[in-house]
Amino acid sequence: MHNFITYYLGSGLLGSLVSSLLPFVWVMTYALVAIYLELKISAHMQDRLGPMRTGKWHGWAQPLADVTKLLQKEDTIPTAADKALYILAPMLVFVGSYAAYAAIPFSPAYIGANINLGVFYIIAVSAIIVLGILMAGWASNNKWSLLGAMRTAAQLVSYEIPSSLAILAVVMVVGSFNLNDVCAAQSGWFWNWFVFGKFPFLFITFIIYFTASLAETNRAPFDIPEAESELVAGYHTEYSGMRFAVFFLAEYANMFTVAAVASVLFFGGWNSPFGTFMSGPVWGAFWLISKGMALVFVQMWLRWTLPRFRVDQLMYLSWKVLTPFALFNIFAVGLWMVLRG
């Protein structure tokens, strides 16, 4: 039973529809929570309080208020913009981020599409985001946007290589591209998780993957495509209102995607850390989301601590540090497997 919804509702129209909308509900809720957390976490890291008034208790309603504000805003499209592409771009970016959710195993009983090439699919579908961002930068007809888009194209394409190579190392160990199988291979107590020394090289793999994934989500210290102190707002400089919000939503959705993939690949996915204690389909979802959110927290933590790389330093890190290490890592994992049988 990979998907409890299609199990009960059948795999007809109704089942597919409910099954594909479930992650959407999750992304929306999560985005609101994550925006609130980002506001609060950054505030507490910076010795201030953050929103305190909206909704009385610690400003909990701030994200809702923000969304309401963005919904009411005038939808402006620059006169010189390429209208069709300008409108299409944010949708494409969101589609790219959201499509990845189909292959994330939220629990043993729920995965949108239990495909054999799960990881492969996520990498492939995330690449659509680059297209959307390039489109946004080009269609805005603004020099800052264009610079941001050019940076993004270079950055995302470069960092896909170390991140794919890192994923490949895990795939070699498990012998399957299916994310459910990856989770199943790490069952039992938390020392069975790949990050903790079952295979010593997988810890390095995790560091490589996590660094590269930060760059893929355009988060600090790799947020140069939107570097607000340099490029104003990068590729989404001209976007306002809900169109801007969609970019924002896609960024947060993407943050969770990479965090979820990292927790599936290295932290046991939906497995409980305590063997069979607190495990099962419902607890599975709880564990995956908790692990994902923990990694999202790390992403925020890094963002509010580190300065930003420069474009050439970013390329240096990808091609001369991460990629060689990832290649060496694959070789080492392979050697280990051959020697250990």
């Binding site: 950054s42 600090a220 947020d223 570097a227 580190l306």
Partner: peptide, 11 residues
């Protein structure tokens, strides 16, 4: 902040 580190600014 110009370099991208927001937090020291508030300190």
């Amino acid at each position: 902040m110009d370099i991208g580190a927001f937090t020291p600014f508030l300190y």
